[in-house]
Design a protein around this nucleic acid. Structure first.
Lengths: 354, 354
DNA sequence: GCCATTCATGTAACCGGTTACACGCACCTC
DNA sequence: GAGGTGCGTGTAACCGGTTACATGAATGGC
């Protein structure tokens, strides 16, 4: 559990605002005004204070400041996990939006159960102005009880009464995939689902089923846990099926990557022998061989919008954005044959430079 | 007005320790003692205080607490970028170690220049107990001036006098790659380097040159910027060379992935026509086609060790760990032919379950 | 019965900032 | 000369906790 705190004994104590005030021969109020550029101050005073502050290496104490202003300019981000490109992108989206607005991020990953989550959510009271919580493994109804009432909170991918949220059209995206595969003539499609209690996984599964029903396809469902390894196992199982499905829809790209790897090992060629589609459109998807057809989820946008809602100050439940998904057709589904693809091209173009 | 802008005013102010004290009929000191389990308190008092705290939904204010205890139990993490799997892994390593020790993470990415970096590093004074800084694009000498004296700091991948650091044996890893390729008979090797001012890129380049010299190989150097796109461009250029190098060493896995994609588009087969090796061993490397031979860098360990040093309290410069790298031979270098590989197998086994 | 101890708790000074309000002064207007 | 108006600055209360020290009651030894 908690270890010895960081030892600060060998470090000279930092100068405080009172040190600066004393040495500059002014009051603390004046120093504060100089640093915050508030109220009228004589030019000479400003210079004197700044000189002394520089000499003393004075750096304002953000903790103390936030205590009296009641604003920390920090947002807490609580994620279930920090694994892989998906979360990395979410964080990046939030971070980008945060620095634009001059906010910091207090990050916390790996919250498997509600006790752990409550602990961290309570521990940050007074250190954050708001919270962005993504907890796909927790029942929304269970989630709501754990969130402190006094902290504005935005939920990602989960709807809870009284809290703003921002969700992804998982079911719609999944239906699009099935429709696309059906239009290519596939009648026998395997679905590699995510963890049973995961909300996103559940919605994608529902979308798959609805699509299968609507287009008269014969569905087979396997279950993974969103990791490459579980996708590999599922892929191995599918490769061994007889008759073998002609198409595979993985509930996220990581599992699609694992399945791709399994098919390669089993000498099942994608897309010639079997079509493969993922979900998320994580950055590497387009660099796979073959480039992965998948459902584009505006992942970074998810984070960005979450922060925006939080900073808008409207923490009423009225805010419930839903982000649309779009099918990105590359080569793994077999819809395109030549080397230079529309989907590939278009996507590469739209990629950010850095 | 149909919709009045909702401010935080509609959120009831949180209860303070004084509210609890008053309602429980005790002093604030007692409430504080109850919550921190310090000093002897009568059992009945504990219960009464806890009951009142529960009724009032009291949550201690971490900001106020840290002001008086002078300990925030938070570590600041400053990274140049939050892009891709490398940084994602670094963060994960730090986060895992942090939660074990009961610490939080204040994260900040995207620090291109020193002004931006100084700003953020100063802004967090009083909100963090220590800092983990990774700034490969900044001259170590320039870096040192920006770091506040009063905050314990650990540097990742950069050595600066007076600060503990933890580095990676980049040059050694690069030499290993060249030796391996040379042992496979390659005499004409292309190197896709990273950004000119990046410290890691520079060391890998030096290692490549040293290795080339030692093993009598004919080197060609191209330059990328660590992104897949730049790797793609470099790969395209290499594919068009005549005579074409027989092996390519990319200074990181992202660029290797881009090059792989370019070779595929140019109908240059890996490893049959050209061998390919990367650097970092990011999680997806083993799932590429062909699985990527690369240099394993203990990325998460980098973060973990950084935090450990910080928490050890020994912020003297004496701490200067160097993490070793190791070559992971998969199929992209052509050293192995069959489907089930030692490198692949062994690596899959060592992968964490979640 | 008196003093020393121990236990349980209260009082108030901090931590390092912000800011409402007060104050002194120069200048202006009648 | 009295009163008004800004300007520049200082005083002190406050943000919400922690904690050194004080206090008072109960206990025990003599």
């Amino acid at each position: 559990m908690p270890r010895a705190p960081v030892r600060t004994t060998d470090i000279p104590p930092n100068a405080t605002i009172r040190d600066v005030a004393a040495k500059a021969g002014v009051s603390v109020a004046t120093v504060s005004r100089v640093f915050n550029q508030k109220g009228p101050i004589r030019e000479a005073t400003v210079r004197r204070v700044m000189d002394v502050a520089g000499a003393l290496q004075y750096i304002p104490h953000a903790g103390a400041r936030s205590l009296s202003t009641r604003s920390t300019r920090t947002i807490g981000v609580v994620l279930p996990d920090l694994h892989g490109e998906f979360f990395s992108e979410v964080i990046r989206g939030i971070d980008l939006a945060a620095r634009e607005s001059g906010y910091h991020l207090l990050l916390s990953g790996s919250h498997s159960d509600r006790d752990e989550m409550r602990a961290v959510v309570q521990a940050v009271r007074g250190m954050v102005d708001g919270l962005i919580v993504m907890s796909p493994d927790l029942e929304p109804s269970a989630l709501v009880g754990e969130l402190p009432a006094g902290i504005p909170t935005v939920l990602l991918n989960a709807k809870v009464d009284g809290r703003p949220s921002i969700t992804i059209d998982n079911a719609g995206g999944a239906r699009d995939v099935v429709r696309h595969l059906a239009s290519l003539g596939h009648k026998h499609i395997a679905f590699i689902g995510g963890p049973a209690k995961n909300a996103d996984a559940e919605q994608r599964r529902r979308g798959f089923r609805a699509g299968a029903k609507a287009h008269g396809v014969d569905p087979v469902e396997l279950t993974g846990n969103f990791t490459e390894d579980s996708g590999y196992e599922a892929g191995k199982a599918i490769a061994a099926m007889s008759p073998r499905p002609t198409a595979v829809f993985a509930a996220n790209d990581s599992m699609a990557i694992g399945a791709l790897s399994a098919f390669r090992d089993a000498r099942v060629r994608v897309p010639d022998h079997i079509a493969l589609v993922g979900f998320d459109d994580i950055p590497i998807a387009r660099f796979l061989d073959p480039p992965l057809t998948t459902v584009k989820v505006p992942i970074a946008e998810l984070g960005r919008r979450g922060l925006q809602i939080l900073l808008s100050g409207d923490t009423q439940a009225t805010q419930a954005a839903r982000l649309e998904t779009s099918l990105v057709v590359r080569r793994s589904c077999g819809a395109q044959q030549s080397g230079v693809k529309q989907g590939l091209k278009q996507n590469r173009k739209s990629q950010k430079k850095r």
